[in-house]
Amino acid sequence: MTVHDIAYVELYTSNKKSAVDYFVSSMGFSRVAEAVGVDHSSALLRQGTVQLAVTTGPATWRFLGEHGDGIADIALTCDDVEEAVRSAVAAGATVTGPGQSRMGLAQGNPAVSAFGGTTHTLLPRDHGPAAGPPPGRNWTTLPDASLQDTSLPDAAAPEAPGPEAPEQDAPSGPHTGRIQLLDHIAVCLEGATLDKYGDFYRDAFGMSCYSSEYVDVGAHAMDSVVMRSSSGRVTFTLVAPDPGKGTGQLDAFLERNGGPGVQHLAFLVEDIIPTVREYRDRGMEFLTVPDTYYDSLEKRLPGMRAEVGMLRSAQVLADRDEWGDLLQLFSRSPYERNTLFYELIQRRGSRGFGSSNIRALYEAVERDRLTAE
């Protein structure tokens, strides 16, 4: 039942063209394959060891109606698929029928329920991120990072796939392929359910609790648990509002998302400051950090005093644990319902998430939420 890797993550979207443009133009992903079926159209994107499937069409409509644009499937590789299914069902999951994961199930790849509308397709250990496109679909490999689109009409009516249509060109200038891997996936859950889901990932997939954190900002608070596989390549950060406090950003996410779901994907980069500057130039929007944060940073981390000016300019957060430094920044959500956003993270030896950064990132999202209201 042990899981080893995330083979791919699948985004269901009402506007595939826009979603693909965002990843390719702003974040440097390459579009490597297309799959078109009766009820779906998918683009496969890659960068580093990350595989993203971006899918639209009738097969996605129920998910989109309930949750908005978001992560519908997180495919996990495991030692023994049949045993993983049995363990997941014993831990409370159900094997999904035709619906969200019908494209995988049609070819014999089982999927089990996870949280909200999100599932886990379970694949053999040898089908990791570098093993090729997700199985179960008729993929056509593209000869290069072409931006040609064969998407279905976006989720407005159940029409047949239309003809190929060219997408808009990406901004000029080469991408540097800055993303290395998927560092972690943050999942927003309902209050008082962290233990339930932590136990699920332990019992179903052999993951263990790496750390926990409670962030109290007075009017409301966030509780979190980090679950990690023994391989170190699958990390879920489970977060939930404290039901004993007032409502805040996590409650707002749960309302917009129609329940639990993936809040953000965190991508590991080698050098975050030039990455943020490049992505910002290419149109990606990030959350802002007040100057007072950097004023106190010089006192909190005196060893980074020489870097504070660059961190302030890029609006990057910094922290340190017993192993090294951690640099992070959240994007704004590019989706209409504000149901999913992204994180850039650089680890200079750090293995955790940084208590001060967790609070600062939470406060940054809260400021952005209050500004938008």
Rank of each mutant, 00 (worst) to 15 (best):
A157R: 05
A192S: 11
A240N: 05
A219F: 06
D216V: 03
R125P: 06
E213Q: 04
P153W: 07
F205R: 00
P161D: 06
D169V: 04
G162A: 02
F236E: 15
F236Y: 15
A160G: 04
L147N: 09
P124Y: 02
T193C: 13
Y210T: 00
W139E: 14
T141I: 07
L189A: 05
D216N: 07
G232W: 05
S208N: 06
D195L: 08
A170Q: 07
A131E: 13
Q168Y: 03
P129L: 04
D216A: 03
Y214F: 13
E190Y: 02
H184M: 09
G173D: 14
A131N: 08
E167I: 03
H220S: 08
T118P: 14
F115L: 11
V217P: 07
A165W: 01
G206P: 03
Y197M: 14
K196D: 06
F115V: 15
D199N: 03
V187M: 00
A165M: 01
G116S: 11
D154K: 10
S212M: 07
P143Q: 00
D199V: 04
A156W: 12
G218M: 08
H184F: 06
H175S: 15
L147S: 08
D203L: 04
A170S: 11
E159Q: 11
G232Q: 09
P124F: 01
Y210N: 01
P124E: 04
P163K: 00
T176R: 15
S212P: 02
L142E: 11
T118Q: 12
G116T: 12
V239Q: 00
S146I: 02
P241V: 03
L182H: 09
C209D: 10
T140L: 11
G117N: 10
